[in-house]
Amino acid sequence: MDIQVKIGERIKALRSEKNLTQEAVAFKADVDRTYMNHVETGKRNISVVTLEKIVCNGLETSFKDFFEHESFSNSKRRGRK
């Protein structure tokens, strides 16, 4: 699965868990609501700066907690034994 899609799905899942609308997260993160929709559907290649705004400000979650989710774990280690 594409990393953009994984990030979008994780954002959407956290947003849903916290019972927040796209509009509420977008407002806290200082991004447009339609941009949030495109991020959640994996249609936007989000910058690290904007990802930080959405995750840390909009969702009030740390990067560590965001990326520790099982959806980001590699089942295979490339080039390592």
Rank of each mutant, 00 (worst) to 15 (best):
40 E>R: 12
40 E>K: 09
19 N>F: 10
20 L>D: 00
7 I>K: 04
46 I>S: 03
21 T>F: 04
13 A>M: 10
26 A>W: 04
30 D>P: 01
38 H>K: 15
21 T>E: 03
19 N>H: 12
20 L>V: 02
25 V>K: 04
9 E>F: 08
5 V>Y: 03
38 H>I: 07
20 L>K: 08
29 A>D: 06
22 Q>R: 15
5 V>H: 06
17 E>P: 06
46 I>A: 01
10 R>D: 02
46 I>L: 13
24 A>R: 07
30 D>F: 14
6 K>W: 10
35 Y>E: 04
20 L>E: 01
32 D>R: 14
20 L>T: 04
16 S>T: 15
37 N>R: 14
38 H>D: 15
16 S>P: 01
17 E>D: 14
37 N>E: 01
13 A>Y: 06
12 K>C: 07
18 K>V: 08
13 A>P: 02
8 G>T: 11
6 K>C: 06
24 A>N: 12
6 K>M: 11
7 I>C: 09
6 K>G: 03
22 Q>V: 07
45 N>C: 03
10 R>G: 00
19 N>M: 13
22 Q>P: 01
23 E>N: 15
40 E>N: 11
5 V>M: 08
37 N>Y: 10
17 E>C: 07
31 V>H: 09
20 L>F: 05
24 A>P: 00
38 H>W: 09
6 K>S: 03
36 M>V: 08
34 T>L: 08
6 K>V: 11
18 K>A: 02
16 S>W: 09
8 G>H: 09
9 E>S: 10
34 T>D: 01
34 T>K: 15
12 K>E: 00
35 Y>G: 09
7 I>Y: 11
19 N>V: 13
15 R>N: 02
45 N>H: 07
44 R>S: 10
38 H>T: 13
34 T>Y: 14
11 I>Y: 01
